[in-house]
Structure formats: C-alpha cells, structure tokens
C-alpha cells in the first residue's frame, strides 16, 4: 500500500509537470516555429504526431518488460504494470495513427496506404488491442495474467520491426529525422512536446497501475469470499 501511495504521488508530479510543458510546446510548435519549406504549415502536425510514437514506444516497452518479469517472478504487481503499459500504449497508438493519417492526406494525397511503416503500426495496434480483449475474456486471474504476458511479449517483437521498417523498405513514409537534419527552431518545440508526452505517459501509466491494483485486490477478495462460502 505504501508503494502504491508513492506511485500515486510520483504519477501526480509527472502529470502536473506535463501541463506547463504542453502549453509551452503547443505555443512554440503552432505559433513560434516556422512552417516547413516543403510541406508548409501542415508539418506542425509533427509536434503531436511524433511525441505520440515516443509515448507508444515507452508504454509498450514498459508492458513488455513487466510481462517478462511477471512470467519469471509471477508477482501480481508486474501484471498490473503490464496492463498499464499496454493500455496506455494503445491509446497513443490510436492518436499516432489518426494524426499520421491527417498529415498524410495533404502531403501524400491519401489518408491511408499499405506502406510498410503504416502497416506494421496497424498490426501493432491490433495485437495490443487483442491483448486487452483477451484479458476481458479470461476469468481465472493467473491464467489471464500468464496468457496476456505471453501475448505482450510476442507482440513486442513487432516494435523493432516498426522502427526499422522505414530503413528496410524505403517507400512512402520518410526515414527517422535527427536534430542534425531538422532546423533548431523546430527541434526545441519537438523536444518540449516529447518530454511533456513522456510525463503524460508516466501519469497515465501510474493511474492505470493503481486501477489494476485496486481491481486486483477486489477480485482476490471476491474469490476468497466465494471459496469461504463454499
């Protein structure tokens, strides 16, 4: 319980810290930064699109590590962190795909195409959404946690494929940029938004962990009472 209070407190700090960063990042990205020389103003979608994928990578990685730890140690807290990582990852996976589609229409001419990067991110979303559906359908807590951990571990194998897809198959989606290839006036708002999204991710994961811990305790108690009543 003391551990949960610490997670609650740290999560709140992350959430509070994210707010001024978000405000500043939005101002710099939407007003202060210059438009892109080729794409014009629509490139400003980058300041919300790319940080979404940072949040996805962080969340799914947390879910993956927690799943491995659960499979090795069989401690419930790792299952709670795995749930938190995957669910928050799915949320940002959705925002990343939506903002990418809205960026793609004016620049590529289409909202969606079966480009390797887009396809692998769609597969990633379906896989981790499947993880959440699976959890809803398995009643036994141990079987549910074990099966879900296996799905998250196997599902995470796609994450490096998503990252390298733009290098392995050079098609429509551009390769990763680096600060050396982006104008400094665009790097600053992007970095601020990345830090803010990371803090929001930590905040959401802490809330989701607390939900999982509270629901897990209630489920254990319910099972215990059911067993005691025969």
């Amino acid at each position: 319980m003391a551990n949960e209070q610490r997670i609650d407190r740290l999560g709140r700090y992350a959430g509070i810290l994210a707010l001024p960063g978000l405000g500043l990042g939005l101002y710099l990205g939407l007003v202060w930064a210059p438009p892109d020389a080729m794409m014009g103003d629509v490139q400003r979608i980058m300041y919300v699109h790319f940080p979404s994928w940072i949040a996805v990578a962080l969340s799914y990685f947390a879910g993956f590590v927690a799943s491995i730890l659960y499979l090795v140690k069989r401690e419930e807290r790792f299952d709670y962190w795995a749930q938190a990582g995957v669910e928050v990852g799915v949320v940002f996976n959705i925002t990343g795909l939506i903002s990418g589609s809205l960026w793609g229409r004016p620049t590529w001419g289409v909202y969606w195409t079966w480009d390797p990067r887009l396809t692998t991110t769609a597969i990633m979303l379906v896989t981790f959404a499947g993880y959440l559906v699976l959890r809803a359908f398995v009643e036994d807590p141990e079987t549910r946690a074990r099966t879900a951990a296996l799905v998250a571990t196997v599902g995470f194998l796609n994450v490096p494929i998503v990252y390298f897809s733009v290098r392995w198959w050079r098609t429509l989606h551009q390769m990763q940029s680096s600060p050396s290839t982006v104008d400094p006036s665009m790097v600053l708002p992007l970095r601020i938004m990345m830090v803010s999204f990371t803090l929001i991710t930590l905040y959401l994961m802490s809330r989701r962990f607390l939900v999982a811990a509270a629901e897990g305790a209630a489920e254990r108690e319910s099972l215990r009472m059911g067993a005691a009543n025969g």
Partner: peptide
C-alpha cells in the same frame, strides 16, 4: 496558415 483544418483535426 494553410491546411488549418488538418492541423486542427490532428490536435
């Protein structure tokens, strides 16, 4: 600002 609708929709 060009493509304002797409930018606003994404945010």
């Amino acid at each position: 600002m060009d493509n304002l609708g797409f930018i606003a929709a994404a945010y």
